[in-house]
């Protein structure tokens, strides 16, 4: 599968404090985002997710490393036309109505949009009814959705979102999640940072896991959930046809236990690898509490 974004050894140091001291925010972070996939960018607060995104979008300058959007180095004018972005908790011009707001961002993107197209964009984020209302009257969830609409107004191929579901109530999160799934179904590649592991587990095909400025895992979510668990789940019936369930660590032990059950006259009903939660994987990789 084609890599739509390739990141190679990004390093970034900030200088903080009255007497500026260097703080390492990113240390040789490398990963790739595959076309048409939903990639979660996961890490605790301060892990370096936002810094990475800001480096990729040229908001901050790199110390070293390189990155490619659509195979082209850097974030040039061509990439800008093909990428949409929504930061975490942004403030929008409150005096603009939802319609005017999208029209402004469409014009800024160099796209001349018909009124019907803007209304469609609002419809896609369930805000058609609020089109004429000023953004200052929007709720937090509505602002997040109109923010999503501005990120998508120029029909980007890659959508980069910084904590898109952070600070929303459960209904708001579900709504945003559904919108993101719809966007992904249209073939848009999604790359979003989050520390909400449930959302990442429900949405993502791939994950990039960051801890203390380093990428500790980048790849398939399914693979890491299965790989990280050495447990096998055995469901079997004994000779009296009573159903049992056992968890066995390691493949060899599982095989040995299966032979024991069969030898004692039992029947194997199901053997499967236990699938761990992303939360467990996260704790394991980042050294947090398990």
């Amino acid at each position: 599968m084609e890599d739509i974004l390739t990141v190679d050894k990004l390093t970034k140091t900030y200088r903080r404090g009255f007497i500026p001291k260097p703080v390492l925010a990113l240390k040789e972070a490398s990963f790739a985002v595959k076309k048409g996939r939903i990639t979660g960018f996961i890490g605790a607060n301060g892990a370096g997710k936002t810094t990475t995104i800001r480096c990729l979008l040229n908001f901050t300058h790199l110390d070293s490393g390189r990155f490619f959007f659509f195979g082209t180095p850097g974030f040039g004018s061509e990439a800008r036309k093909r990428v949409g972005y929504l930061p975490e908790h942004p403030h929008f011009y409150g005096f603009l109505s939802g319609f005017e707001f999208l029209k402004f961002y469409a014009q800024l993107s160099g796209k001349k949009k018909q009124a019907s197209e803007i209304m469609d964009a609002l419809e896609a984020v369930r805000l058609k009814e609020a089109a004429d209302r000023p953004l200052s009257a929007y709720s937090k969830g509505m602002l997040q959705r109109v923010g999503l609409a501005q990120a998508m107004i120029h029909k980007p191929e890659l959508l980069i979102l910084d904590e898109p579901m952070s600070g929303l109530d459960p209904d708001g999160r579900r709504l945003v999640r559904n919108i993101l799934l719809e966007v992904a179904q249209r073939g848009v590649t999604l790359f979003f940072s989050t520390h909400l592991l449930d959302d990442a587990e429900n949405l993502c095909d791939d994950i990039v896991l960051m801890a203390q400025g380093k990428v500790v895992y980048a790849g398939s979510l399914e693979k890491v959930l299965l790989q990280s668990s050495g447990q096998h789940l055995l469901r079997f019936e004994d000779e009296a046809h009573a159903l049992h369930q056992e968890e066995v660590a390691g493949l060899d032990k599982a095989n040995h236990r299966i032979r024991e059950i069969l030898a004692s006259g039992g029947r194997i009903v199901e053997v499967s690898r236990s699938r761990r939660r992303l939360e467990d994987v996260f704790s394991q990789w980042t050294g947090g509490p398990s």
Binding site: F59, K81, Y85, P87, E88, H89, P90, H91, L108, G110
Partner: peptide, 13 residues
């Protein structure tokens, strides 16, 4: 501070 600038500068601006 309000992060408005980030949504602007990501466009061809």
């Amino acid at each position: 501070d309000r992060k408005t600038i980030f949504t602007l500068l990501v466009k061809p601006l």
